[in-house]
């Protein structure tokens, strides 16, 4: 008994040491450090924008509409005379709630499906994977628009539909990891101890397939920002007068000839966020698979 406990502790220590080593490796990579700094910067802005924004983002000033960038308004004003800088800072909060929520939900559901399919195999596995195949056939954004058009627009449905599109992909990754892991001796031991299946899946298998799940989470986060921003650009996400970036680009694009700063600021904001999150995901994947 003591021996088993000791083995467990030393395994946990080794796991922690490996995680520590991965982190140290990542911190030496300039691409990781720069993209992590940009992404963290946007998280700070999403929380602290009421302090940072020079004007209230909804303050309308019809006489100062379409103002060029100036000392008073660093990034100019929009078609209602609202301060573009303030709206761009405030616009971070919607995408930084909706995208992580979708990614987390997708990974949670995908992990549950992947664990079940990989552990039971047989019919359960086959049925789950065929459904997954069918969902993957329709291009993601088409399915998202279809569901949002049918159910009506709401941010909750937006999160659910983006997560539903990603969950099958997550489940494939998790299933593949579980298939390799379930043949190990400690799973046989757990079965001999007559541990319930749910306990084996959650307490034995899950901790050991955690690294690919974490990689999946960071990669899905990048895709989630992409999907959420695109759906808000379609007008299927946050509604007016929200300062959401995608919404602002779609409304402001008609003034692009005379006031390009209205769309340039939110477009640059989405660009910096999505590119930094994508590179972050790739760096973490490379570090874990090292």
């Amino acid at each position: 008994m003591t021996a088993i406990i000791q083995a467990d502790t030393s395994a946990a220590v080794a796991g922690r040491a490996r995680a520590h080593g991965t982190l140290r490796y990542l911190l030496r990579r300039p691409a990781f450090v720069v993209s992590a700094a940009i992404a963290l910067g946007w998280v700070v802005v999403a929380i602290a924008w009421p302090v940072l924004a020079p004007y209230p983002p909804d303050q309308v000033h019809p006489l100062h509409a379409f103002g060029r960038p100036s000392a008073a308004h660093l990034l100019g004003t929009d078609w209602l005379g609202r301060d573009v800088l303030s709206r761009t800072l405030a616009g971070s909060s919607s995408v930084l709630v909706l995208a992580p929520a979708s990614a987390l939900l997708a990974v949670a559901v995908g992990t549950a499906i992947g664990l079940t399919a990989g552990y039971y195999r047989g019919t359960v596995d086959m049925v789950l994977m065929r459904i997954t195949d069918a969902v993957v056939t329709i291009p993601g954004i088409i399915l998202d628009v279809l569901v949002l058009a049918s159910f009506g627009r709401s941010e909750l449905v937006l999160v659910l539909v983006v997560a539903a599109g990603f969950a099958p992909l997550v489940s494939r990754t998790v299933r593949a990891a579980v298939l390799a892991e379930r043949e190990r001796d400690y799973i046989d031991a757990a079965r001999l101890r007559q541990e319930p299946a749910v306990y084996i899946m959650v307490a034995e298998l899950l901790p050991n397939v955690l690294p690919p799940i974490l990689v999946e989470l960071t990669i899905r986060l990048g895709y989630a920002v992409f999907a959420v921003a695109t759906l808000s650009f379609f007008g299927l996400g946050p509604q007016q007068p929200s300062p959401d970036w995608g919404l602002t680009v779609s409304l402001g694009i008609q003034y692009v000839q005379n006031a390009p700063w209205i769309v340039l600021a939110p477009a640059a904001a989405i660009g910096s966020l999505v590119v930094s999150v994508t590179i972050l995901g790739d760096e973490i994947r490379a570090a874990v698979e090292r």
């Binding site: 695109t230 650009f233 680009v249 692009v256 477009a267 590119v275």
Partner: peptide, 24 residues
Amino acid sequence: VTGLALLGLPEFVGGTFLLVIVGV
């Protein structure tokens, strides 16, 4: 790295940049 960055960029963002820089 450039390819990876482009891969993650939503089309309407890249399109807006092109529209403003090349067109306007």
